[in-house]
């Protein structure tokens, strides 16, 4: 398996309705707390390397301003050029993939093995 997709499920009530609470704090990476919309239980926490909104190009501009791509290399330029397209393609691929019932920890272990 090259990648796996799982819909988060509440460990308490098994609901699939969740809310993302995005926590932005100076000096820390952005963290996303996932809360169950039904019972309010904690579902998961993600630490973000980079945040990309529904406007990937604007996200790219913010990232580039922070010196995220400082060397004028061809590979870097190609990466920038394909930034929005890559996100679009990955999103489509993710939504179309069959969902797994494995736990995220299990998927991570399996894919990293």
């Amino acid at each position: 398996m090259s990648f796996a997709v799982k819909i988060e499920t509440c460990p308490q009530c098994r609901s699939r309705k969740t809310e993302n609470l995005v926590r932005v704090e100076p000096g820390c990476p952005v963290r996303v707390y996932v809360r169950c919309s039904e019972c309010g239980a904690f579902v998961a926490r993600y630490t973000l390397e980079r945040y990309t909104s529904d406007k990937p190009y604007e996200s790219l501009l913010k990232f580039s301003r922070r010196g995220g791509c400082s060397i004028a290399s061809r590979s870097h330029a190609q990466e920038l050029e394909g930034f929005s397209k890559k996100i679009e393609t990955e999103f489509k691929e993710t939504t179309e993939a069959p969902f797994t019932e494995l736990k995220v920890e299990e998927i991570i272990c399996e894919l990293k093995r």
Binding site: Y57, L60, L61, S64, C69, A72, R74, H76, A77, Q78, L80, E81, F83, S84
Partner: peptide, 14 residues
């Protein structure tokens, strides 16, 4: 666009 990141950024606007 691949000559340098500034060109790539402008091109990335679509």
């Amino acid at each position: 666009p691949v000559s340098t990141p500034p060109n790539a950024i402008a091109f990335g606007s679509g």
